[in-house]
Amino acid sequence: MSILKEQDVVPFRNRVKEYAVKTGMGIVNQTKLITAASELVRNMLLYAKGGIALIEVVSRGRENGIRLTFADKGPGIADIKLALKDGYSSGKSLGLGLPGAKRLVSEFDIQSQVGKGTTVTIIKWKNG
């Protein structure tokens, strides 16, 4: 799904919810996943003028989950460690998006290259 404007955020969240419900994920984990997704999608819009968000159902053994990939061709992040710190923001917002999203999901991966873009991948296991 391509995310290019702020009005894309709510429909995207609804899609994530549909998938999460399909895997039988409980309401608390759903809420955590969608909140993390919301943070990452917002970052993509804000810092990279949009990008692509991918929703997949994944499984490992008997465990099902949802994997979300957020890929943009924005400016990239020079210091990922810093960006992952609670309260760090290059703008005037709260700086909780990346570290908060990381806490809310089971697996979190971020790849970024200055001038090329950023890709964040998260997995939330159904019972994770």
Partner: peptide, 10 residues
Amino acid sequence: AVAITLIELG
């Protein structure tokens, strides 16, 4: 669920 999530979000 929202309250729980907010806490974890920080």
